[in-house]
Design a protein around this nucleic acid. Structure first.
Lengths: 244, 244
DNA sequence: GATGGAATTACTGTATACAATAAATGGCAG
DNA sequence: CTGCCATTTATTGTATACAGTAATTCCATC
């Protein structure tokens, strides 16, 4: 599996230099790629992320990789240890508690605003997201379902109109996904699959307080579904994980 | 014409500090130095931050400067425009509203926890911070006072025991400082200087609900003290300015 | 003069080379 | 065989060189 998978961008001459959209989008794509891989647990907590290995896989230099790793570290999906490199964050029980307490405070607090601002169109969009999530769960893709569930919560927060709080929720949700991926039960998402649909119902009718209470129970249910046990570590095969 | 001001004035270019400090701490010191300069408005909103210039001033290469700028950008103290470099963020009215709404939700929500966990020692520490803040205000150092006030709010949030929410508050406070520096009235800090002492009183007696309500009024007062006039267009109307 | 456009300059984006440090290896003594 | 120290290797940290792009200047043309 040495080089068969790396596409022709390996050493593309001037001809294809422009192929990578704008360098900026390329970086963003790589960022999302790694972020998704972590959240979907294809990169497991504790896994080391060597810079030149990633640089090889994505065909950019370590400079760009370092930038991406620093961004991931700021969102606490990866842990940066000085002189010893990056690894996928292994969330602790304390962190899990902090994250879910924060979600209680923020996401519940946003529900009245969301209920006030929600329109037909957005409700439909949310229902579609909930549908995809159910489907992923039915087809056994638990990790994907976890990520889709997080996307749902983030979209909801964005509908509040407060970009700052929405960004906080985004960070909390990606950390939650990591927590769920580690401490969650197999076959039990935490979110009951109909929960999100029920929530949309309350929001559609403008019942902010009802939605707030429901969100609170919903988050409590997710947190309660966690079981804290330790994971083993192993060396990830980056080629396989990111290979296309 | 009015050039962007020179960043961070330093008299002695050659410093002994460089060798003794670990590179990591050095970076952090530079980060704080720039962050403080922005929050205290020695670097004004809109000011360009050229990489070479900063590299010269601090005696490290552009690599390190870029890393620091990216971190500042993530905290939204600095705005990074692709291919056009970094500049001090110019907060908008919408952002100000988002930030203060977020503070209402989070800081008020934390008060009961803080009240529950606060001890003698921490109360004393907070009183000392409040004292320094008053002193800075009395001696006319408004910008310094703004930063010290932010420090107070951050320390308070840390006492809640939730590191995640405390970090959010930290970010909100530094952005608030920038907002205050831009939209605040001279000689009016927003925070009445005795407010913080009153708050400590409520917390000391474990009266979380009282503290929450007080914090809410406190933040509303700060926000109300802002004079939100929209900024000039990117192209100023010279006709109007120099007319007649 | 004013205007458009080429040449010049200034600055950012990216890769790479080199230095510093931690990990791994191997050899030697006990 | 085992533990410790020297040496080698692997990997990160930092500076620098180079390429690409926006801004500026300068000149020719109308």
């Amino acid at each position: 599996m040495s080089d068969a998978q790396a596409p022709e961008k390996r050493r593309a001459p001037a001809k294809e230099v422009k192929n990578s959209k704008e360098g900026d989008e390329r970086h963003d794509a790589i960022y999302r790629s790694v972020s998704d891989a972590i959240v979907e647990q294809r990169l497991k907590p504790g896994a080391r992320l060597r810079e030149d290995a990633l640089a090889d896989v994505f065909g950019i230099s370590r400079t760009g990789i370092r930038k991406i790793l620093q961004r991931l570290a700021l969102e606490q999906l990866v842990t940066l240890t000085p002189r010893r490199g990056a690894s996928v964050t292994r969330p602790t029980a304390d962190e899990a508690k902090d994250v879910f307490d924060a979600r209680q405070l923020i996401e519940c607090g946003l529900m009245p605003d969301v209920a006030r601002r929600m329109s037909e169109k957005e409700a439909a969009e949310l229902r579609e997201m909930a549908r995809q999530e159910r489907q992923a769960l039915r087809s056994g893709q638990q990790s994907v379902a976890i990520r889709l569930s997080a996307d749902f919560h983030v979209r909801l927060a964005q509908l509040s109109g407060n970009a700052t709080l929405a960004e906080f929720v985004e960070r909390l949700c990606s950390r939650s996904s990591l927590i769920l991926a580690v401490y969650g039960h197999r076959g039990h998402l935490g979110c009951e699959s109909h929960d999100h649909d029920d929530l949309i119902g309350y929001l559609e009718t403008g019942n902010g307080e009802r939605a707030r209470a429901f969100m609170s129970r919903h988050l409590k249910a997710i947190e309660a579904s966690l079981s804290m046990f330790e994971e083993e570590e192993n060396v990830p095969d980056l080629q396989q994980i990111f290979g296309e």
